[in-house]
């Protein structure tokens, strides 16, 4: 497969959230506003890229029988680093994402890509895979959070859309709204894929 394809596959065909349905728990938790969705996506992509690079470089050194604990240590290290850097240099973002950042450690997309891709491929394809999957995940988060923020809070990226008299459907930014949104999007994606066949 070409490098370009490794990049684009994560965006639609193997979108981690919509097609592989990995990492649902942190995704549904943070997508109450577009700002949070973007922030989580950016932090996630940075960790994924860093872990893919490290694991692709170390793939011949890491013994097979303890690869999973090694991956987890590597991923957890990058998450901790990002958490500290974000706290120091982007305090507002840190405040809204705070408790979700450590969740990136257990985000199965990252471990999934390490296991399924980076540990079997060389550096360049792994970078492309990390970038594509990161972008795909971020896009998915932004789509879900735009849907929820517009319907649930009547705003987009914090900008009011409907004027003061509008009464938004609050349920959309509460946890049930996350599941409803996810269900609708997955159903639409399946329909389009089915029609295309």
């Amino acid at each position: 497969m070409s490098l370009g394809k490794e990049f684009t596959k994560g965006i639609i065909r193997e979108n981690p959230l919509f097609r592989l349905t990995l990492g649902l728990c942190p995704s549904l938790a943070v997508t109450t506003s577009v700002e949070n969705g973007l922030g989580m996506g950016a932090a996630f992509s940075a960790v994924l890229l860093a872990s893919n690079i490290t694991i692709a470089l170390l793939r011949k050194i890491i013994p097979d029988s303890i690869r999973i604990p090694s991956f987890i240590v590597i991923i957890a290290t990058f998450v901790t680093l990002i958490e500290m850097i974000m706290h120091a240099f982007a305090p507002d973002l840190f405040k809204s994402l705070g408790i979700y950042i450590p969740l990136i450690v257990v985000n199965c997309v990252i471990l999934g890509r390490a296991e399924a891709f980076a540990s079997k491929n060389s550096l360049m394809p792994s970078i492309m895979d990390g970038l594509g999957m990161g972008l795909g995940f971020t896009l998915a988060l932004v789509i879900i959070s735009a849907f929820r923020e517009i319907l649930g809070a009547g705003t987009f990226y914090g900008i009011p859309l409907f004027g003061a008299s509008a009464n938004p459907a609050l349920i959309m930014i509460l946890p049930p709204g996350g599941f409803i949104t996810m269900g609708i999007i997955l159903a639409l994606m399946n329909k389009f894929q089915h029609d295309a066949k």
């Binding site: 890491i62 013994p63 604990p69 090694s70 590597i74 957890a76 901790t80 680093l81």
Partner: peptide, 18 residues
């Protein structure tokens, strides 16, 4: 022992970076 040592080194490097 070798595996344990490897994990020790990985964790040690991670600790240094953090």
């Amino acid at each position: 022992l070798k595996l344990g040592l490897f994990l020790l080194i990985v964790a040690g490097l991670a600790g240094l970076a953090i």
